[in-house]
């Protein structure tokens, strides 16, 4: 049974890992452009945290991460990342507990799902708000998910190492 001190330490380490990846994103990933699209790492972190830590703690983490993204990043609508990351976390937790065995494959699948959920939500907002071409929106969603997915090879070992430290 985890004490409150251990729990605090665990989430402090997750927060530190998140900050590290966020700095890498600000300094490196956001400067990368593949066919005009940049990778987006934050949905992957929301999904993997929930995949390792379960639906409740993972959802809280995802919600806080989403809120921070909403206040620091430009999004089609305020609160979109808070909502989408929470949904991603719940979906990731459900998949990792019921369908897939935890591992790199599970992380890749839940990450792909969360990237598609986030991108689809942004695409839907733009479709209803500005009448953007659905084909262009779908293409953008797939592009973003495809170029962001390789970042799971960075986030997965980082989060897994923290998770393993606190498994009893």
């Amino acid at each position: 049974m985890m004490t409150s001190r251990t729990l605090t330490l665990k989430w402090f380490l997750f927060a530190s890992a998140t900050l590290l990846v966020a700095l890498l994103d600000a300094f490196a990933f956001s400067r990368i452009s593949v066919f005009g699209f940049s990778p987006f790492v934050f949905p992957i972190m929301a999904a993997l945290a929930a995949s390792f830590e379960g639906p409740l703690q993972g959802s809280v983490y995802a919600m806080i991460l989403g809120a921070l993204c909403d206040v620091t990043l430009t999004a089609p609508l305020p609160c979109v990342y808070t909502v989408s990351f929470t949904l991603c976390a719940l979906a990731a937790a459900a998949l990792s507990e019921g369908v897939l065995r935890p591992g790199l494959l599970c992380s890749a699948v839940v990450s792909a799902l969360s990237l598609l959920i986030t991108a689809s939500l942004c695409a839907l907002i733009l479709f209803f708000r500005s009448g953007a071409d659905p084909a262009a929106l779908l293409g953008a969603a797939l592009h973003e998910a495809a170029i962001s997915l390789p970042l799971v090879f960075l986030v997965h070992p980082l989060f897994l190492s923290i998770h393993k430290k606190f498994v009893f």
Binding site: M1, M2, T3, S4, L56, S59, V60, M63, I64, C79
Partner: peptide, 23 residues
């Protein structure tokens, strides 16, 4: 700690949702 989350986790979640929507 685990009991706290089991009993009050859903309220924590709902509170965070309310805070997010208010903001």
């Amino acid at each position: 700690m685990k009991r706290f989350w089991e009993r009050n986790g859903i309220w924590v979640l709902l509170s965070l949702v309310v805070v997010a929507v208010s903001l």
